[in-house]
Write a protein that binds this DNA or RNA. Structure first.
Lengths: 214, 214
DNA sequence: TAAAAATTGTAAAAAAGGTAACAAAAAAAG
DNA sequence: CTTTTTTTGTTACCTTTTTTACAATTTTTA
């Protein structure tokens, strides 16, 4: 097997392809060309073909890609062909929004544990899940087989939460707190950052306006 | 003035620099070198210097950067030296989380209007804001001077919401719905997408595991 | 005061990523 | 059956982004 380092952005795009292929599948579309898919995904056909080429050959020349087949293959590449167990740290407004978000459950992700630092939130139930104190992270992560931690707690607690998750064996973290988590190198961290996006918009709007004035 | 197109990723990093400079400022740090800042931000010193070079010279050779000064300058570049007025579409769990999130208010962003499609949510008050029906978007955006729209409504309604916001004069949208919004080219869209981040983590975890097995 | 150390700004080199072009293969048309 | 059309996979090229290297400047040390 060749050792080609696959750029992160390729993975991002594969996820987008998968999402749009799912929609096509639901619409009953059997075959799609790279041109059509690129159009839907807002990219260009060569990019799609090249992205897929990192992993193999999934299309038929002169025909295109079979939607179901490509979806299956991309799912296999991304590792979406299994259930992933999530543990939530922080059951505030955002945490609750995530827990109640059915979209994830429909896509192979299930919250199996939830933690909070506020005493008044401990022991409340949300669906099948009972909120536990941070101190229970180590035990429950192992007990429930949490694979991915979702940090939606106040920034001051975020690093502590990350440390406890990692200590308990979690190797993947989605971090909603607006801080830079410091973790061992074997831990994968993805940040979801709303204010960053707002800042980008501000820049664009500001520079667009100053361009207009000129 | 030169016309240098500034890469989007540079803006993203500037926002990160600003965030970490704020923390340094609070800690009472006066001067910081590109080496130290890079270390904090998880990037490399040359990158910081080059990013800043797009916009001018903000440091002192042999000394470093004055924290307050650099923070002020980056703020000016990003357009954070004014209050930005946000309009929220979708007052579900996520929308509420965003509204109640005080972090934004501390950083120049204020929600001034909120909309929802569900009749039972109309007219409820959250803080100073009264939830209005989608049909009121056009009027209220103009009345309250909404500059940025935040879409946190179900995917099926997201495109409609975007269209109404744009029609009312909004030129920047932060989209939390997991769909590709189609808008006029003068409208800037930033997507915040957790499932995308989850997918990336899954890929990383999956490929790390298969590497271990080898 | 002179030499050494620290640190920026920037030019040049290297690496990465994206685009275009085209051979190969399949399907459709004539 | 042959030609034309469609479309993938892949190579080569081009563009963008990152990293390296170093002159210029300031501060610190001797």
């Amino acid at each position: 097997m060749k050792f080609v380092k696959i750029p992160s952005i390729v993975i991002t795009r594969l996820s987008t392809y998968a999402r749009n292929l799912k929609i096509l599948e639901q619409k009953g579309v059997d075959v799609v060309s790279s041109v059509r898919l690129a159009d839907i995904c807002g990219t260009n056909p060569a990019q799609i073909r090249k992205d897929l080429a990192y992993f193999g050959q999934f299309g038929v020349k002169g025909v295109g890609y079979y939607v179901k087949e490509l979806l299956f293959e991309i799912g296999k590449i991304l590792g979406l062909d299994k259930e992933w167990r999530l543990g939530l740290v922080g059951v505030g407004n955002l945490g609750l929004a995530l827990l109640r978000h059915t979209h994830f459950m429909n896509h192979g992700y299930t919250f199996v544990a939830a933690f909070d630092e506020k005493p008044e939130r401990i022991d409340i139930r949300i669906g099948d899940i009972e909120v536990a104190p941070l101190e229970a992270i180590n035990r429950l992560v192992k007990e429930k087989g949490v694979e991915i931690g979702v940090i939606a707690i106040k920034p001051v607690w975020a690093q502590k939460a990350a440390d406890m998750l990692v200590m308990a064996g979690v190797c993947g973290i989605v971090n909603f707190a607006p801080i830079q988590l410091q973790c061992a190198t074997h831990v994968f961290i993805e940040n979801v950052d709303f204010s960053l996006k707002l800042d980008i918009l501000c820049y664009r709007l500001t520079s667009a306006r100053s361009r207009q004035r000129r």
